[in-house]
Amino acid sequence: MKNIPPLTTLKCFEAAARLGSVTLAARELHVTHSAVSQQLSSLENTIGIALFVREARGLRLTEAGRLYALEIRTALHALSSATHQAQGRPEDDELVIATLASFAVHWLTPRLPDFRRHYPHYRVRLHTSLELQDLRQGFADIGIRMGRGHWPELTQKKLFSDELLVVAAPRFICGPHQPTPAQLVASPLLHSTDAPWAEWCAIAGIAPQALQSPALTANDSNVILAAAVAGHGIALERRSLVAGLLARGELVQLSPLTVPYPYPYWLVWQPRDSLSQKQLHFIDWIQEQVRRPW
């Protein structure tokens, strides 16, 4: 491409245009005042346009300079974004998995040593978020999502369905007997935003009006589980998240009654003619993990 000024020159121009000062631009870019001034003069000479009016108090953009600055700022942002995307794409020996933090902490991470034993040549990187991550950009090799499926432009394979259990810390409920459903709903309740306590009440034969106001509500199950383990109340949470806590005795199940969870887990990936070897290895491995007992 011709007629493109050097990147250093454009960065100096963008900073000076945004800050309205050569001094401030030099400070931001960690260069000298004279270096920025020379770059600005060079740019104006190169493109043959006056970009600034020099005034006693600093610089004032001409109208042509203002419009040019907007375009250059957009272009520099695009360059930065492209570089970030290139750096974020997985390398051949790196497996990047996008999923929910709660699933990563309580289900996936405890099992990853087994994956490493089978496939020690892969480096695993987890990218966690409460938001759906756009896998079409190639930042992750595979995603594990929770929902009803039918995400456009992605190949998806159901991993497993889940159910909700009533759990609390062992010290929260005292006495040798399991509490009745009425006693449970009269206790301090910890609410995930997607935990249907009303459905559990219907299964237990209790009017939803008997539910206490939640002691805590959170949109992240990690918060609810931390509060439950700390003994702050009773939670209705997914078996996939509490199975390990139950096995270690950090939580106990307070009722045999369970509620089907309406959102299964899915494997999702970019559609292509053939999957990479690392994708195939991970899919085979995680399906085998799902077949094992909780």
Rank of each mutant, 00 (worst) to 15 (best):
P120I: 04
F139Q: 11
I144R: 04
L154D: 04
V124I: 15
E153L: 14
T128S: 07
I144S: 03
W151Q: 09
W107G: 01
G149R: 04
Q137C: 10
R148P: 01
M146T: 08
D141R: 08
I144Y: 00
V105D: 03
D141H: 08
A140D: 10
P113M: 08
T109N: 11
H106C: 01
I144H: 04
T109G: 01
I144L: 13
R148M: 14
Q133R: 11
G143D: 04
E131Q: 14
L126C: 10
H118F: 08
S129T: 12
S129Q: 09
R116T: 06
R123W: 00
P120N: 05
D134C: 06
L126S: 08
L130R: 11
L135H: 07
R136I: 07
P152E: 15
P152W: 03
T128L: 05
P120H: 02
R116F: 01
R117C: 02
F115W: 04
R123L: 06
L108E: 02
H127C: 10
L112I: 15
H118K: 13
P120M: 07
Q137G: 04
R136K: 03
R116H: 09
R145F: 14
L130H: 12
E153R: 13
H118P: 00
R111H: 09
L108V: 03
M146H: 11
L108N: 03
I142Y: 01
R111Y: 08
G138M: 07
H106S: 01
E153W: 13
H121A: 11
V124N: 00
G138E: 09
E153A: 14
R148W: 10
Q133K: 10
T128A: 04
L130W: 09
L108F: 01
T128H: 05
G143R: 00
L112M: 15
G143L: 03
Q137R: 13
L154P: 03
T128Q: 08
H118N: 12
D134H: 11
A140R: 08
T109H: 06
L130I: 13
H118G: 06
L126E: 13
Y122C: 02
L108A: 05
M146N: 10
R116A: 09
F115C: 12
H127D: 09
R116M: 06
T155N: 14
G143W: 01
P152N: 12
